[in-house]
């Protein structure tokens, strides 16, 4: 079936380097440094990435970081909680804008 997203396309990510190798190299070097063990562990960073992947709704990132989380030793319970964190922040971000709605409504109403 023809779909917009193809799982195999994740493997072609490096083709993005063909248009501008210098920017690609800079991005990849930064990317590797971000995910290296630091003040946060690689496992914690993969869980954050999984949550963000759900917030930005990137199917490639969800595939990649589900596998990465498992390979860093996380379990599905932890990964589910990470997704809920993304969900809570997204939902909370909508809800907190209700204050804006209330401000405007208050101004317009008698």
């Amino acid at each position: 079936m023809e779909t917009y997203y193809h799982p195999a396309d994740l493997g072609k990510f490096s083709e993005m380097g063909k248009g501008n190798p210098e920017l690609w190299q800079k991005f990849m070097s930064y990317y590797s440094a971000v995910f290296a063990e630091g003040a946060l562990s690689e496992r914690e960073k993969a869980l954050i990435a999984l949550a963000v992947a759900h917030a930005v709704q990137c199917p490639y990132c969800i595939d990649a970081y589900t596998q990465a989380c498992l390979e860093k030793g996380s379990n599905v319970e932890e990964m589910t909680e990470a997704v809920h964190v993304a969900c809570a922040i997204r939902g909370g971000a909508s809800l907190v804008h209700g204050v804006q709605m209330r401000n405007v409504a208050g101004k317009l109403s008698m």
Binding site: S41, R43, L70, K72, G73
Partner: peptide, 14 residues
């Protein structure tokens, strides 16, 4: 050993 089709984590971290 991984409970599925994925590689094991770093030994010292797990």
């Amino acid at each position: 050993n991984p409970a599925g089709a994925f590689l094991p984590p770093r030994q010292e971290s797990i």
